[in-house]
Amino acid sequence: MIKYILPLLLISCLTVSSCSSKQKQFVTTLTIDDSITTNVQIDTVVLVLKKRLEMAKFKDVIVTANYKEHLLTIQSAALDKDWIKTNLLKKGALIFYECYSITELADIMNEADKMAAQKIAGNKTDTSSHPLLSAFYSYAQQYTIGNTSRFPSYIGEVTKQNIPRLKKYFELSKELFPADAALVFKEENTTTENAPPLSEVYVVKENDTKFFASNYIKKASAKADGKYNSVEMSFDAYGTYAWKRMTERNINKAIAMVMDGKVLTVPTVINTIEGGNSIISGVLKKQEAHDFADLLSSGYLPVNCSLKEMHELEPAE
């Protein structure tokens, strides 16, 4: 077994299995970027990283924390730097939000557009440019199913280039919107052949009604159904209760499922869900679904981390 001598400060060492003398070992150093971090949060990061490495089939791994210097070290086979950034260090925070509809916000958006225009013009009355409303590519349009007329759960669509603009004018007029209103986007929505790639714009309720699903996931697995891929989740006892309550109060309303600030899907609740299960479907490629399931099963990172360096570990004499 290869011995690796660590300073006394490097504690919370978690060993998956003993190191193989036949495989080169590397030390990957990560930096905890958050300035305010507790030892409990760091311990959680160690556990989450360990789980993610195990799920990715890495063996002979040691994950270690240096509390004082806010550093983490991973002793393992070589890790791909792109994989570290896109998989290992993803926060993996899955949150379910209640949404505001276009019918609730239409009048507010018109007034907010006027306020943004006045602020841009130096408090002079000038609404000709319509800064907020013109940032949209299109607005949510009413449609009919059977004898029922409905609006989509999003309020409009926007090009990627106009997202910063929309956010800017939303902030200029934020005082007119509900205090808990927050913008989120579902990227790359395909519309007509001649339209550019569009993102759907949702206004979610950033308040105590949100359900932090990542905290209560007991199991997650990827499923394939023809050309569609999905991720099935089951919650623990409290998560089952919280999910039931959320669906119960949102019958015929939309719930936005958001991962790390990006909308994955926005299903409409048909019935109360009592079994503690949920599905995210139709938005992932096959490998993405497996990676996403692993991400949910491993838990979320409570702090932001980044790659500092990686070097080969010299074998002990």
Rank of each mutant, 00 (worst) to 15 (best):
I2A: 00
I2M: 06
K3Y: 01
S17L: 01
S17Q: 00
S20I: 09
K22V: 03
F26T: 04
T29A: 05
T38V: 14
T38K: 12
V40T: 02
V40C: 09
Q41C: 14
V45R: 05
V46P: 03
L47C: 07
L47N: 02
V48Y: 10
D60H: 12
I62Q: 06
A65C: 11
E69T: 04
E69N: 04
H70G: 06
L71V: 03
S76N: 11
A78W: 15
I84A: 07
K85M: 15
K85A: 15
N87A: 07
L88T: 08
K90Y: 14
L94D: 10
F96T: 01
T103S: 05
M109F: 06
E111N: 09
A112Q: 11
A112D: 05
M115P: 04
A116S: 08
A121M: 12
A121D: 07
G122I: 12
G122T: 01
N123L: 14
H130A: 04
A135R: 02
S138C: 11
S138N: 15
Y139C: 00
Y139T: 01
Y139L: 14
Q142N: 03
Q142W: 05
T144S: 12
T148P: 15
S153P: 08
Y154T: 05
I155M: 02
G156D: 06
E157L: 08
E157Q: 13
E157K: 14
V158H: 04
V158W: 02
P164T: 07
K168T: 11
Y169V: 13
F170I: 06
P178S: 13
D180W: 06
V184D: 03
V184G: 11
E188W: 09
E193W: 03
N194W: 09
P197H: 04
E200C: 10
E200K: 11
Y202N: 02
V203D: 08
V204P: 12
K205W: 00
E206T: 13
E206L: 13
N207F: 03
I217W: 07
I217F: 11
A222L: 07
K223T: 04
A224I: 13
A224C: 02
D225Q: 04
G226I: 07
Y228K: 14
E232H: 03
S234L: 06
S234A: 02
S234V: 04
A237K: 07
G239N: 07
G239E: 03
G239L: 08
A242Q: 15
K244V: 10
R245Q: 14
N250A: 07
N250G: 00
N252H: 04
K253D: 11
K253R: 14
A256D: 14
V258S: 10
G261E: 05
I270D: 05
I273R: 10
G276H: 13
N277L: 07
N277S: 06
S278D: 04
K286A: 15
A289R: 00
D294Q: 14
S298N: 00
Y300F: 14
V303Q: 13
N304M: 15
S306W: 13
S306L: 15
L307G: 10
K308C: 02
P315A: 10
